[in-house]
């Protein structure tokens, strides 16, 4: 009998199969429109995410800050200001109170900083062995404002791709800690993007934004190219790489384009306003390394190409499942 594997949760092709299995069972034929959150009539934006991470605390954050930032970012990239949050806590018997309190404190701090209100929640304690310590689920609710129509469908040839910060830092941090690497200067980029992205919203030429989480920058670009039926070309030498994350990837044989970030957004903007967008992003501390990394093309619809540091060009694809360290 075929069973689910970890790879089904990694955001790549296996995840797509899992999602379509679920969607197919619901009335009205819901389709995954591949946006980060749903925008309901009246500009109400809703998203829900489950969080599991090993280790629960890592350099630059913990599961508490992650669960608020992650859901808030899913709203922010569609131009919706995060307002409310509902929190589900599944905790394993034997889990230390002190740790739970610590993670909830970090969650609370992010909410306070963003003005998000916790409005409802649920707790479940499950017998030992039935959960890996702590699982959190957050449903975030927000409201769209200046730019209600942000989304993949706006992307058209000629548009410019902007990246707000180095990709893959969260993923590299988790991988390093899982495989016992001590890395100077490596830290997750876990952060709430709203304060920075909010400043971009007045730009008329703003088309679409996405946070490069599970599956990494590569996955975001591939999904854009596929759904908007355009080509995308980026230049490896223009990506603002984080040196520490790259070293981890080199060492473990992982592809940095497939590593998750938790405070890094890709932005599509019209060529006329590309410089303005870059300027605005750079004015915010979260975007100080922002960079224009490529553009949308008419050629090669559905494909993403990267001009490599050596001058070659190749296709970028989504990861298949969990990125595993390689010796070979």
């Amino acid at each position: 009998m075929e069973t689910l594997s970890i790879g089904h949760g990694a955001g790549g092709r296996l995840t797509e199969e899992l999602v379509s299995l679920i969607l197919g069972r619901f009335p009205g034929n819901p389709v995954a429109d591949r946006e980060d959150c749903a925008v309901l009539p009246g500009g109400i934006a809703v998203t829900i995410d489950g969080y599991t991470v090993t280790p629960l605390a890592f350099e630059g954050g913990d599961i508490g800050s992650l669960c608020i930032c992650g859901s808030a970012n899913d709203l922010s990239v569609r131009g919706a200001k995060p307002l409310y949050i509902a929190l589900g806590v599944i905790v394993e018997e034997g889990f230390p109170f002190e740790d739970l309190a610590r993670f909830m404190t970090s969650a609370g701090e992010v909410c306070r900083a963003l003005g998000i209100e916790l409005v409802t929640g649920d707790t479940k304690v499950v017998p030992r062995g039935q959960a890996d310590g702590l699982f959190l689920t957050t449903c975030a609710i927000g409201k769209t404002g200046a730019h209600p129509g942000l989304g993949t469908r706006n992307i058209s040839p000629g548009d410019v791709i902007l990246l707000t910060s180095p990709p893959g830092m969260h993923g590299a941090t988790i991988a390093a800690s899982r495989y016992g690497l001590k890395v100077n200067g490596l830290s997750s980029d876990c952060a709430a993007l709203w304060p920075m992205l909010e400043t971009l919203l007045p730009l008329e030429g703003l088309k679409c934004m996405r946070d490069c989480t599970r599956g990494g920058l590569g996955t975001v670009l591939c999904e854009w190219a596929e759904s908007a039926k355009v080509g995308i070309e980026i230049d490896e030498t223009l990506i603002p790489w984080d040196e520490a994350s790259i070293s981890v990837c080199d060492l473990l044989g992982l592809d940095p384009l497939h590593m998750a970030g938790e405070g890094c957004a890709a932005v599509v903007v019209s060529p006329e306003e590309a410089e303005a967008a870059l300027e605005l992003a750079k004015n915010h501390p979260l975007g100080k390394r922002a960079s224009i990394i490529g553009s949308v093309t008419e050629e090669h619809p559905g494909y993403v190409g990267i001009h490599t540091a050596s001058g070659g060009t190749r296709l970028v694809d989504k990861p298949v499942g969990e990125e595993l360290p390689r010796i070979c």
């Binding site: 690497l181 001590k182 070293s247 060492l251």
Partner: peptide
């Protein structure tokens, strides 16, 4: 077939083990 990365030796613990760095990574 065989991924191998240059490391600089920082400390020798004994004749079998050492602390080494590859860029910012210490292992």
């Amino acid at each position: 077939m065989c991924l191998a990365i240059p490391h600089r030796i920082l400390r020798l613990f004994d004749d079998k083990r050492a602390l080494a760095s590859a860029g910012p990574v210490e292992t």
